[in-house]
């Protein structure tokens, strides 16, 4: 064939129809999908087996499930909260302890140096007596106000060796705390740690304390005398 006639050339557009269909079913489907939309019947719902065990009911779509009486249970209101009732439990426990250890509030007043006038102040000479009878005397260097853990630091020199003791104010081991001598002038610091330096060290306070004890005994002796006289 040298050259196709013009009629044949026009018929060439139908050539695709004459082509054999591809063998693969899948390919046919793909081609078809691209070309047109196919009708398929709406799927009918599958039958649900009768007497379906309870644990499988949740797998059904919601509208098919039998109505659960539990489903719309009201949400119970919360019970009263302990957190709201007692906002500061640590404080409550500490307060309960303080009520036992310091029922009169005397010790608190003796060391609350910011509020109480007659309290111990840094620089005072203090004598502490413990339950077992041992006393400890010293200059008060600092007072640490921390509620139940309130403590004060005393410094003294015993046998020419500096000794420091921090005593918990509310400790049941503390029998009594006495102010032996007030500081001569108001100290301009709350913590007198500089008194540890040799330049500022007060040395021993034993002499002052023994004097105080002697005076106290004399005073109490005087007091005792009239009582006896009355009797």
């Amino acid at each position: 064939m040298a050259s196709p006639s013009p009629i044949l050339r026009q018929l060439g557009c139908f050539r695709s129809l004459l082509k054999p269909q591809p063998q693969s079913l899948l390919q046919t489907g793909l081609n078809r999908r691209a070309l047109s939309t196919v009708y398929s019947a709406k799927p009918t719902p599958k039958p649900i087996p009768e007497n379906l065990p309870e644990q499988f009911i949740r797998q059904l779509p919601l509208h098919l499930r039998p109505k659960d009486p539990k489903a719309r249970r009201p949400i119970p209101p919360p019970p009263p909260s302990a957190f709201n009732k007692c906002k500061d439990p640590v404080g409550a426990v500490a307060d309960a302890q303080l009520a036992v250890l310091d029922p009169t509030g005397e010790r608190r007043a003796l060391f609350d140096y910011r509020r109480s006038q007659r309290s111990v102040k840094p620089g005072d000479i203090v004598r502490v007596t413990f339950k077992n009878g041992d006393p400890f005397n010293g200059v008060c260097l600092s007072i640490r106000l921390r509620g139940l853990d309130t403590s004060f630091l005393l410094r003294n020199q015993l046998t020419k060796v500096g000794v420091e003791m921090a005593v918990k104010v509310y400790s049941p081991n503390v029998e009594s705390v006495e102010i032996v001598q007030r500081a001569a002038s108001r100290k301009r610091r709350a913590r007198l740690f500089y008194m540890r330096n040799p330049k500022h060290d007060m040395g021993t306070v034993e002499n002052i304390v023994t004097n105080y004890i002697r005076q106290k005994r004399m005073l109490s002796g005087k007091k005792r005398a009239p009582v006896k006289a009355k009797k």
């Binding site: 909260s81 302990a82 957190f83 007692c86 439990p89 640590v90 426990v93 500490a94 302890q97 036992v100 250890l101 339950k131 139940l148 853990d149 918990k168 509310y170 400790s171 049941p172 081991n173």
Partner: peptide, 20 residues
């Protein structure tokens, strides 16, 4: 906080827990 044993005078550190 701490609790004191009033008989022995011992200070016992303790943790405060709250049930809600």
């Amino acid at each position: 906080t701490a609790m004191y044993d009033t008989e022995t005078g011992k200070r016992i550190p303790c943790t405060v827990l709250q049930l809600d």
